[in-house]
Nucleic acid binder design. Structure first.
Length: 581
RNA sequence: GCACCCGUAGCUCAAUUGGAUAGAGCGUCUGACUACGAAUCAGAAGGUUAGGGGUUCGAGUCCCUUCGGGUGUACCA
């Protein structure tokens, strides 16, 4: 049980006594330490309902509170009840956490299966910086959900069946440089894609040719299928290299093509069940009229007024669309994988699409907790969304390479004793960590303009700062004569810096469930910065190796626990910690 | 037109979803390495939370409105 849960349980008991019936109220971590460690506004909320004096009610609640050995409580301001955790309680908590591999994190996901749909690049095109958010946020959410006990299925729903293959097939047949493809396939695929794309603009008949190639592919033409398969294979190998660099893993790579042979039946089912109907030759899902137009994803306001905004599941030419594959995918995940939840880590611009998909799924009888985990856009220097087609975008590989190189330069400057393989490995851990942390420490909905320096910073509120904290701790343990036995250590707290460390340790388990509620890994990032700052302050104020007896043992144990929380927390963000740096 | 996201220190961003005197980093300024690692620490300056109304004990957060940026809106994904 976390301290917060403990307080809530005791508060509920006190409330029941005061109100004469079952009642509960939320306790939150205090925003400011001057007001204690935790607070509740239960008295103010209840006083409003009962039209009584909030401070008097708070007094009654406190008189009923049994906080023996845990905390003290007092009234402040308009009727807050502030809790101050006793140092002995923090010490006991920290000591207990030393023996807990989960570090106090509750298994709130036990028995639930969640599919996380993230990254999902289009094949035959390199990933540019705009693709980084889904990949990194999605991976982190997978790790956090697993740590909370969820069964997590990480699925890379790659775009391997889109209209871009019309152009690529045409380019493959007319423009392909076999040697270039052999040497480095992805840039060559991108080159032919771009060349054909610009050719279609100059000459509309090229576009027709491309469409025909696509139709042949979708009809099962052997030659086109073989080319398509080759594209997929080289693309996947290229993508895998980036995922290896990023330390991102998927359980499945079920792309759009996987669902191809289910689409016709799906459309038929929607037609026979009356969920969709024909309109202008296309098969569409329309509004069912149960919502106000401004809240209805199938309605849109144009100059002439409110009008239909259907989700098209089959084009007039018989082709299938994004919405069709997404519905087939959702069905598969619910029926085959028994998913209770599906989290789609996809940018804000697609929010309308997901509102339509979720609504259509509900009418179809596919129930589950579906979440569009939307994130803001990465903008180019012109403050416009980065587009794949324009081609001037910074590629993801280049960002990662540059970050590792910058880290290597800093290592050479600050730790010249590190050499060769070891230095290169550390540069990779630090450089990649910096990029990931830059992304994860930000609120996911904010847009930002891509800038090298913000993404690759190595000082201040960055991953290297956190990694450096763990390195300093490990350095201490290397200096010990005998291995430190954390399992039998007892933590006692005297200095304010020690108490603050233990306070933050206790919060780790309270924080993680909060993160998954709203999909905000940045809360974890901020927490880790706070913990590292607290550690550095402690480290300046409290000698460890120079202390004696129980104080030394306690401080070593605090170091050990801090190291574990930092390493675990960074691990949940997908960031590793080096032994030295 | 309508819908969605956003606007917070010079810059880049937070703020546990309605809590108390809005916090970090970068940059600027003062200090601290013969020291358990200075990729660090201790401290200072920096704010009408885009503007204006409203709701209530209490608003960066909710409602209305104006301005500014981004995105979406029938056969791309």
């Amino acid at each position: 049980m976390t301290l917060l849960q403990d307080l809530e349980a005791r508060l509920a008991t006190a409330l029941a006594a005061v109100l004469g019936g079952p009642a509960s109220a939320a306790v939150t971590a205090a925003a400011d330490l001057r007001f204690g460690d935790y607070q509740t506004n239960a008295a103010m909320v209840l006083a409003k309902q009962r039209k009584t004096n909030p401070r008097a009610l708070a007094r009654e609640i406190i008189d009923q509170l049994q906080l023996d050995g845990l905390a003290t409580a007092d009234i402040a301001g308009p009727g807050f009840i502030n809790f101050r955790i006793l140092p002995e309680a923090y010490a006991a908590k920290a000591t207990a956490l030393l023996g807990d591999v989960k570090l106090g994190v509750p298994a709130i996901g036990e028995g639930k299966t969640v599919v996380v749909d993230f990254s999902a690049p289009n094949v035959a095109k390199p990933m540019h910086v705009g693709h980084i958010r889904s990949t990194i946020i999605g991976d982190s959410l997978c790790r956090i959900a697993r740590f909370l006990g969820f069964v997590v299925i990480a699925d890379n729903h790659i775009g391997d069946w889109g209209t871009q293959f019309g152009m690529i097939l045409h380019g493959w047949k007319t423009l392909l440089d076999a040697e270039a493809l052999e040497a480095d396939p992805i840039p060559e695929l991108l080159r032919i894609y771009r060349d054909v794309n610009s050719a279609t603009k100059a000459d509309p008949s090229v576009l027709e040719t491309c469409k025909n190639e696509l139709v042949k592919l979708q009809a099962g033409d052997a030659e086109n299928l073989a080319i398509w398969q080759q594209c997929i294979d080289v693309s996947k190998r290229g993508l895998q290299k980036i995922y290896d660099t990023l330390d991102v893993k998927f359980d499945h790579w079920l792309g759009e093509s996987y669902y191809n042979d289910r689409l016709a039946d799906l459309v038929d089912e929607f037609l026979t069940k009356g969920l969709a109907r024909e309109s202008n030759g296309a098969i569409c899902i329309f509004s069912d009229g149960t919502k106000k137009p401004e809240e209805d994803p199938f309605m849109v306001h144009k100059e002439e007024g409110w009008t239909d905004n259907p989700a098209i599941i089959r084009k007039a030419d018989g082709g299938f669309l994004y919405a069709t594959t997404d519905l087939a995918t959702l069905q598969f995940r619910i029926d085959e994988w028994k998913a209770d939840q599906i989290w789609y880590v996809v940018g804000v611009p697609q929010s309308l699409h997901f509102r339509q998909i979720f609504e259509a799924a509900a009418r179809w009888g596919k129930t589950g907790n579906f979440q569009h985990v939307a994130f803001g856009s990465i903008l180019g220097d012109d403050r416009k969304l980065m587009k794949t087609r324009s081609g001037e975008n910074v590629q993801l590989v280049d960002v990662l390479t540059e970050s590792v190189e910058r880290a290597a330069r800093i290592i050479a400057e600050k730790s010249p004793d590190l050499q060769g393989e070891e230095a290169a490995m550390i540069a990779k851990i630090v450089g990649i960590g910096a990029v990931k942390f830059a992304e994860l420490s930000q609120g996911r909905l904010t847009d930002y303009v891509f800038a090298w320096d913000r993404m690759l910073a190595l000082q201040g509120d960055t991953a290297p700062y956190l990694q450096y904290s763990t390195v300093r701790i490990r350095s201490i343990f290397r200096k010990l004569d005998a291995p430190f036995d954390a399992a039998s250590a007892v933590i006692t707290l005297n200095q304010e810096a020690e108490i603050h460390l233990a306070r933050l340790h206790a919060r780790f388990g309270e924080l993680l469930p909060l993160i998954i509620e709203d999909f905000r890994p940045n809360l974890l990032a901020n927490y880790l910065l706070e913990l590292a700052r607290a550690f550095h302050s402690f480290f300046e104020a409290c000698p460890v190796l120079k202390a004696d007896g129980p104080v030394r043992e306690s401080r070593l144990a605090l170091c050990e626990l801090t190291s574990r929380v930092l390493t675990t927390g960074l691990g949940l963000l997908g960031i590793q910690c080096p032994e030295r740096m």
